[in-house]
């Protein structure tokens, strides 16, 4: 049997112990294997809770009929560790996830936990650090690295243990624009090289626009799941729940308001550029 879904949520309900109302209410979604899915929603919509549910840091409510399937395994308290082998998470704050005293140590941390022999560890650490372009920094201490570099090390640490799924839990939100672009480029490249499934939880609309699939979360419920163009071309829906839309879609929306109708098939920056130039020459 081939597994086509990397992550599947079926009627998942989750309540934090100290709160009365559930954060997530009967959530259903699927993430296809080898795809890039973006999970967007405003603050407090339950995005980060989802990432913690996927690798068993949190468990869904009992008696709620919740079923979480990660690469073919139904998550329960016995196979949590097997699932963590398959899922790597890059967290938000680059400082607070750096365990090792040097870059090499940090990348090796996941391998140490799995009892990998040292010779093999040294090779893997070098390989994954060169994958993210940080090999020159192998002996550097975290205090001497920039935020973007620390996130690259975090990605290397996850690649070292060869997961199937990488979750970016607002990983780029504390970085400057150039740091963010670098990280996203690296992820995009690694995703095609290593056939990874990416779930990116983000506020960044451009990051969501890079995805194959977008899930919109609002107050613990899934509002829509579709391709980014479909989501962002309906300008009203994201606006109503307080989300921004990508620049191109914003421009098209404004032009539409000014009476310049842009056809539906114009979706990317280049297409819009071409269309507007053509429009200009027609006049």
């Amino acid at each position: 049997m081939t597994i086509s879904n990397a992550i599947e949520f079926k009627d998942v309900t989750f309540t934090y112990p100290e709160s009365k109302a559930p954060v997530l209410k009967k959530i259903n979604f699927k993430v296809k294997k080898g795809s890039w899915t973006a999970l967007i929603g405003h603050n407090g919509s339950g995005k980060s809770t989802i990432s913690k549910l996927i690798n068993g840091l949190l468990l869904p409510d009992k008696d709620s009929g919740s079923v979480i399937t990660v690469s073919g395994m139904n998550l329960n308290s016995e196979n949590v560790w097997d699932i963590r082998e398959k899922v790597g998470i890059v967290f938000q704050n680059p400082d607070n996830q750096f365990v090792g005293a040097t870059v090499g140590d940090d990348v090796a941390f996941g391998l140490e936990n799995r009892g990998v022999p040292r010779d093999q560890m040294v090779q893997t650490v070098k390989k994954v650090l060169s994958d993210v372009g940080m090999l020159d920094y192998i002996d550097a201490e975290p205090a001497n690295l920039s935020g973007g570099q620390k996130q690259r090390v975090a990605i290397a640490g996850i690649l070292a243990v060869e997961p199937e799924i990488i979750i970016l839990d607002e990983s780029t939100s504390m970085l400057d624009p150039s740091g963010r672009d670098q990280i996203l480029k690296i992820i995009k490249r690694l995703m095609s090289e290593k056939k990874l499934t990416i779930l990116s939880i983000t506020h960044d609309i451009d990051e969501a626009d890079m995805a194959d699939n977008v899930i919109v979360l609002n107050d613990g419920k899934i509002l829509a799941q579709a391709s980014p163009t479909e989501i962002f071309s309906q300008t009203e829906m994201p606006r109503q729940i307080g989300l921004d839309i990508p620049f191109v879609d914003k421009l098209i929306y404004k032009l539409n308001q000014l009476g310049i109708t842009i056809p539906k098939d114009v979706q990317t920056k280049d297409e819009l550029k071409q269309y507007l130039c053509q429009l200009n020459s027609k006049k």
Binding site: N55, L57, R84, N93, V99, D105, F109, M121, G157, V161
Partner: peptide
């Protein structure tokens, strides 16, 4: 945050760990 990150990277106590730095 750090303990969450450590756990999600497969840390479950010191037994069975190997050492990178020698």
């Amino acid at each position: 945050d750090l303990s969450t990150a450590m756990e999600s990277r497969g840390y479950r106590g010191s037994s069975g760990r190997t050492k990178y730095r020698v």
